[in-house]
Design a protein around this nucleic acid. Structure first.
Length: 225
DNA sequence: GCATTAACCACAG
DNA sequence: CTGTGGTTAATGC
């Protein structure tokens, strides 16, 4: 099949702007890999030759800090994940690990560069994505520094509920420890806050099954920090 | 001072 | 891997 990319239903917003000829080219230097939960997709400090695009599935983006592991974000396909590190640095500045089964496309950097140079619509969509990302990180940065524990946990629960699963009830794809790495708190704090929320009937917790019972309250906690 | 918040340690499921 | 309790340190009335 020389037209897999052409028929792909999980194109990025930029990918939609490619014409048939470009999609055929893309297909020649694009390699799709299916990762299982826990598989490493990108490893920090390794040389990066490809633009990494998550077609489907959940991926955690994380980096080794001076003290401990830091989860930068959790993303759901379809979404790019390796643009800044591929373009802006020689080696990967972060790692990426599948936290569910995930289909990932590795796109040759040369062809990606060619699209950016020759297709303005494509380039524009890439810029939009990069800008949205940067703004999101500003927000996250402020939240991490200024919100207290319960606010940060509430925020991430809402994130999983609204942005990742679109459900009130979901299975948390992270351990308590990882949720701590994501929210800049300790695993003990995560445990305590989750049981606090549970005792206040804001959420229902059973292992990693989370149900949000009182979304309003959770939003208030998230907002006020 | 006293309360709140959260990290670190330890230990038990 | 989790939940809890004790301890300690920082910060804010």
């Amino acid at each position: 099949m020389s037209d897999i990319c052409y028929y792909c239903l999980k194109k990025s917003k930029a990918g939609i702007k490619l014409d048939q000829k470009e999609l055929e080219k893309l297909n020649h230097s694009c390699n799709q890999v299916v990762f299982q939960k826990g598989d490493k997709i990108m490893i920090q400090d390794a040389l990066s030759y490809n633009i990494v695009f998550v077609k489907e599935g959940l991926v955690k983006v994380h980096t080794k800090g001076p003290e401990k592991e830091q989860i930068l974000k959790i993303i759901k396909g379809p979404s790019y994940l390796g643009i800044p590190t591929t373009i802006g640095a020689k080696t990967n500045q972060y790692s990426a690990t599948a936290i569910s089964k995930a289909s990932v496309c590795f796109v040759g950097f040369d062809i990606f560069k060619e699209f950016i140079k020759n297709n303005g619509e494509f380039a524009y969509e890439i810029i939009v994505e990069l800008c949205e990302n940067e703004l999101q990180f500003y927000k996250k940065c402020i939240n991490q520094v200024q919100k207290q524990g319960s606010g940060k946990i509430a925020e991430s629960l809402l994130y999983f509920s609204e942005k990742i699963f679109n459900k009130q009830k979901f299975k948390l794809p992270l351990t308590r420890n990882e949720l701590g790495d994501l929210t800049c708190t300790s695993r003990e704090t995560v445990s305590r806050i989750l049981s606090d929320f549970s005792n206040s009937n804001i959420i229902k917790v059973n292992r990693n099954d989370i149900s949000i019972l009182d979304k309003k309250q959770l939003e208030i906690i998230s907002k006020k920090g």
